[in-house]
Design a protein around this nucleic acid. Structure first.
Lengths: 203, 203, 203, 203
DNA sequence: CATGAATGAGAGTTCATTCAT
DNA sequence: TATGAATGAACTCTCATTCAT
């Protein structure tokens, strides 16, 4: 029943923010299904009752957390390309450097990353947030590339492919550990593809 | 405790298989966390007791199901390339056809596919099964390509990339629905990349 | 896991006490193995949940009950000798009177007594509680006897024997009903032994 | 429902005996409430079905076991005095020796002893078996003492007391371990009492 | 507004007993 | 007769949610 209430007092607003921040952290850490609302309340040093005044349920806390923090965990690319300039000479190095930074970031958030990935498979709202965020990333990359002289056709779709390629590389490196893959070669081949996409004078 | 029993009688073996098949179906349909062992028992028309004689717990049923059915749901590529021959002329068409078939298959198993993906993010054993299966797919594709005259260096890594590219395309098409993407162009560009990988005289 | 909580509010403290008192009563009445936690909850008019917030499990309720009520059930001797004075003339009568009072008390608690005895055979913690209580009883009796002029050697061991003799007599009378025993004579002989122990100028 | 059947074939009779012997052993070992009928069946290498054809339930197996084997566990005194002769000179030594042998025997059967003691507190049938056995023991001891020249009044009751005293001593020694008791002195005092009982020219 | 004790439905699991083979 | 697979009621325990204070 619609008893959800928005905090007005400064103090209460801070409390709600705390529940999102800390609660989201706990969920990502322990796993969504291994954490109860009482756990979250305790972890945030608030009463269980207050949680049900600010949030529909556990999922709502998670969703709010996803909205606020998914950038860092799922899309480190955004931060990484900010204030970058590229010139043709060191294109390969720049891409490699960027990928390495992303891997590092994602590794730091491994647990959270897994949890978010898992939830995004099942929860339409989470997926929507990610889709929107991906579009944002794509758009920024498109602008970024155009500003750096890459005026290609189908740039939108190419950027999507690039994002996917980088994401795959990151995930392969962090999780899969396929025994039969040489990850250095995998990196080279991925970069090759990205360069091909960026250099292509298609159609 | 080691109370898990292996069925011996024909009838019982069938019953265990039924629990895996139907139980896995139910889990994929409703979601792992929305289904209890009692639900599974009812759905399979068996007693709850028998479930605990054949399986450690709910997860064990799921894992068995994954082992048996993950091919069809996660790796339809395997079936799709069997008994195929390719010649240079229609390479593009063959790839496109293959992708379309895979999308169709995955769409049929959408719910199950989501559930498996989600679980693979959290459960090491599930991930392991998938990793192993992926290696198998890669190896078969490598052999397949070699049999068709594609003797490229880094073939292993390239095939991995191809599998990823196709997988991404499938997922994009089935789930993401990014508003800003033209999926026909996305398909063209993906195929372009695959062809590039297959034609490349690298290094 | 450490989810056990200590009640703070007056009301809750009373509730926990109620669970111990009534739960212990029910267990003693019906038998430890014939009573479930749900039974106890219903009998105490509380929810099952609260039981698991205050107690580890059923056994914990029983143990708490034993700690609180074992005096009355197992060691009525303690209460019985309080504020007694003895002089040589009526020693026999005093002992007989004391024994009769104890039998009466134990008879009232027959079911509980059986249950406690039974559990003490199997449960080390219960046995420990009883052992400690027995030592307390012994010590008080020792002091009591010294205050009444019985300064014997090996008083500790003698008192243990006396306690045992009385206990045996009680149990024989309440339970065994050996057909071949004349319980009046059995009482006489037991008192004889006690007197012998108290009068002995040993070694 | 009265489906209990008595085995007729040699083979089946042996099977029933086996269930009693081995089943009783298992129950005493693991504890009555920690062993299921299926456990017993497995332990005895018989089918669960057959158990329910020969016995009402688990308790029935236990009762049969008690009937057959309780002598050794609860009343080692019987075996110990067989073919003994006593003369006044070494009466003390004989009693001490006897007690030590009993303690040794009971120690060997500690687990079973505990279980039987525990059950005897709750189960009237078990208690009856023990009561009858105790009467038997008493009677044999009475005859034994008369044969050795102890023609005392109230011999029956005295023997009961002696049996109790010895039993207490055994139990104290094996289980209680009261910190404040010196068990050598306790033994001395107990023997003193027994001698007193045997020498007394009462009334 | 905030608290956290209390609720009770429902999850996972066991086991005495039955019954088809 | 003997088997042991199967049953399902009953047990222990958890947790999202409520509500008196």
């Amino acid at each position: 029943m619609g008893k959800i209430r928005e905090p007005i007092k400064k103090n209460s607003i801070a409390k709600k923010k705390k529940i999102i921040a800390e609660g989201f952290k706990l969920i990502c850490d322990k796993g969504y299904h291994n954490v109860s609302c009482v756990d979250i309340a305790k972890y945030c040093s608030v009463s269980t009752g207050i949680i049900y005044q600010y949030f529909e349920d556990k999922r709502a806390i998670f969703i709010e957390g996803v909205k606020l923090y998914s950038d860092k965990i799922m899309f480190p690319l955004l931060k990484t390309i900010e204030n970058k300039k590229i010139n043709d000479n060191d294109l390969v190095d720049i891409i490699k450097d960027l990928i390495k930074k992303m891997i590092k970031q994602k590794k730091m958030m491994k647990k959270a990353h897994q949890e978010l990935l898992s939830m995004s498979c099942l929860d339409k709202e989470v997926l929507k947030i990610f889709s929107d965020k991906e579009i944002e990333v794509t758009n920024k990359l498109v602008v970024f590339l155009q500003n750096n002289g890459f005026n290609l056709i189908n740039l939108n779709e190419k950027v999507h492919l690039i994002v996917n390629l980088i994401d795959n590389l990151c995930n392969e490196t962090i999780y899969h550990r396929h025994r039969d893959i040489n990850y250095d070669i995998f990196l080279e081949e991925t970069v090759n593809l990205i360069i091909f996409l960026l250099k292509e004078n298609n159609n």
